[in-house]
């Protein structure tokens, strides 16, 4: 590992620690599976494609997004259900999922992730022979 790489890693982990320290909201998710793989849907209102990060580290999938809220000058809060702009949630992936082939799409604040299952681990119908 070159010196440069070490520095990069350190910066990245410092950044991650910094972001992990900020209060984040847990977005609600739907998760379902079919033979082709898993589908995860998450509500991330206000998060655009540019402010979304979907990362897999080891076998942990982390979704993180920042909502962009246009606010006029001198605004005062009267009422708030949401008190943060950061959404973050992590999941542990299992071995049969292809973490390197995750497909992510976001539309109208709904993130859809498709995680394909490895071909060899897809369920096979077991024929029962009647003797």
């Amino acid at each position: 590992m070159s010196e440069n790489t070490v520095m990069q890693t350190r910066e990245a982990s410092a950044l991650a620690a910094d972001r992990a320290a900020t209060p984040a909201m847990l977005p609600p998710v739907d998760i379902f599976e079919d033979p082709a793989g898993l589908t995860l849907k998450a509500d991330l209102p206000g998060v655009s494609k540019e402010r979304l990060s979907v990362a897999v580290d080891q076998n942990t999938l982390t979704i993180e997004g920042e909502a962009e809220i246009p606010m006029p000058e001198g605004m005062e809060a009267l009422y708030a259900d949401l008190r943060s702009t950061v959404f973050r949630r992590s999941f542990t992936l299992s071995r049969e999922l292809q973490a390197d082939r995750i497909d992510a799409q976001i539309q109208d604040g709904v993130l859809t992730l498709k995680v394909p299952t490895r071909e060899e681990s897809r369920p096979r119908k077991i024929e029962i022979k009647v003797g």
Binding site: I69, P72, Y79
Partner: peptide, 14 residues
């Protein structure tokens, strides 16, 4: 659902 935030400034309520 849905969550709502309300803010007020001199000219408008958002």
């Amino acid at each position: 659902y849905p969550a709502i935030n309300i803010g007020a400034s001199a000219k408008q309520v958002d």
